Amino acid sequence: MPTTVWLVSHAANAALRSGTFPRAPVAGDDAEEALEARALAALAAWRERWHARLTGDECDGEALRAFTSPAAIARASAYAAGFAGATQSDALADTAFGEWQGKRLAQLAREAPEALAAWTRDPAFRPPGDGESFDDVRARVGAWLDALPDTGHDVIAFTHASVMRAAILHALAAPSSSFRSIEIAPLSVTALRRTQHGWVWLAAID
């Protein structure tokens, strides 16, 4: 059976709801503290809907390999979703936002409107202070996907919207400028399958 990669966007947190650029992960971040009550409820519902499906016979049971972004919210989401042993991978990390981390979109709209507008339009734009462009994210995510061993065992990865957009466009060999046309909701699922012609994007049926 060909390998299928199930990408899951992490649960919503305060930063996401307030439009705040996330900070880079710090060693020792407490993953459990990253989840609020509403996130825990959403993850409980996700687990009831998806866990048995992804770990059942269709996915070869325990052969399913689990990965997570280093971010506390992604690690906590993986744990609450039933994947406590997920392996952290830097390739699945959120975009590095440089000097923008910890700032709100509304603040940047006042302080640096031209730069913020460029970030929303140009996949090559890098936030100041060693930030990553969407093209940078796409390069590392594509490399991670292509390096996965073709064992036939499925993979699940808890990650971020930017990573999922990058993975979809990599699979479709679509231009990076299309990133603006892909919306990823918290706890949404995207599936990619490896074929002899490369990756294909599958519609994940709820």
Rank of each mutant, 00 (worst) to 15 (best):
P186S: 02
T68L: 00
V141N: 06
A31S: 12
P127A: 07
L148K: 00
D135K: 04
R53T: 09
G28I: 02
A78F: 03
S18P: 05
W201A: 01
A106E: 14
D60R: 15
R47G: 08
P128G: 00
D136G: 00
V141P: 06
A185P: 03
A14S: 09
T159M: 04
V141L: 09
P186I: 08
A204F: 04
V137D: 03
L202H: 05
G131F: 03
R193D: 01
Y79E: 15
A71M: 14
R180N: 13
R75A: 11
G82W: 02
V5K: 13
A139I: 12
V141C: 11
R193M: 06
L169M: 09
C59V: 09
S181F: 08
A71G: 14
S77E: 06
F21Q: 10
F97A: 05
K103I: 04
A37W: 02
L169S: 05
L92A: 10
R140V: 08
E33G: 14
A174H: 00
A31P: 10
E33W: 10
T68S: 15
A41Y: 00
V5F: 05
A204W: 00
R53A: 14
W50H: 15
I184T: 05
E132T: 08
E36V: 12
W46Q: 02
Q107Y: 14
A185R: 05
R38Y: 09
R165W: 04
